[in-house]
């Protein structure tokens, strides 16, 4: 993880010190540190001279801006009805078994978090999931084993 202070400074130099820069700064922090920690949010408040409550208000509005500890890879399974009907629960069972965590949890080595997400616009290709910014569609248990296996080996 990057030094929060330096990171926020760098990001605010890159994107600007204004309120409008909040989202790209948040995204930049998540890229490096996986989630927005308390320290990171306070640092942003300081850099932009915005109250901490306002920082948190903005961050907590977006579900992809995590404000509690998350792993390096965030696996988000679509929980909407289409993916559900296409067999989401089997996919989740496989993921849970491979990672030894439940939905909403993070592995001890801080590599993986398993999360639900609302519709990600891939209903025609469900069940679907995201791992960070990459999407995976028409999932089956076997496909999940291969995809996740790759991540686990290369982590």
């Amino acid at each position: 993880m990057a030094e929060v202070k330096e990171l926020v400074k760098e990001l605010s130099e890159k994107y600007g010190n204004r309120r409008e820069s909040l989202i790209p700064i948040f995204q930049g922090i998540i890229d490096k540190n996986y989630y927005l920690s308390k320290e990171a949010m306070l640092e942003v408040a300081k850099q932009l001279d915005v109250s901490a409550a306002d920082i948190y208000g903005t961050a907590s509005f977006f579900s992809f801006l995590d404000t509690d500890a998350k792993g390096k890879y965030k696996i988000r399974i679509c929980k909407s009805i289409t993916c559900d009907m296409k067999g989401k629960s089997g996919i989740i069972a496989t993921l849970e078994e491979m990672l030894k965590i439940k939905v909403g949890e993070t592995t001890e080595d801080l590599m993986f978090s398993l999360l639900h997400t609302n519709c990600i616009g891939l209903c025609d290709q469900g069940p679907a999931m995201l791992i960070n910014d990459n999407y995976y569609t028409k999932l089956t248990a076997e496909k999940v084993r291969v995809i996740l296996g790759d991540y686990i080996r290369n982590k």
């Binding site: 901490a52 920082i55 948190y56 208000g57």
Partner: peptide
């Protein structure tokens, strides 16, 4: 001009709260 309270979360979870829902005695 203190901005101690903010709108947090969204939709049905939306509420008026503080930085990370800290108790009132711990915030600015």
């Amino acid at each position: 001009h203190v901005n101690a309270l903010a709108v947090t979360e969204r939709g049905r979870d939306m509420k008026i709260s503080t930085f990370m829902h800290l108790p009132m005695n711990e915030i600015v």
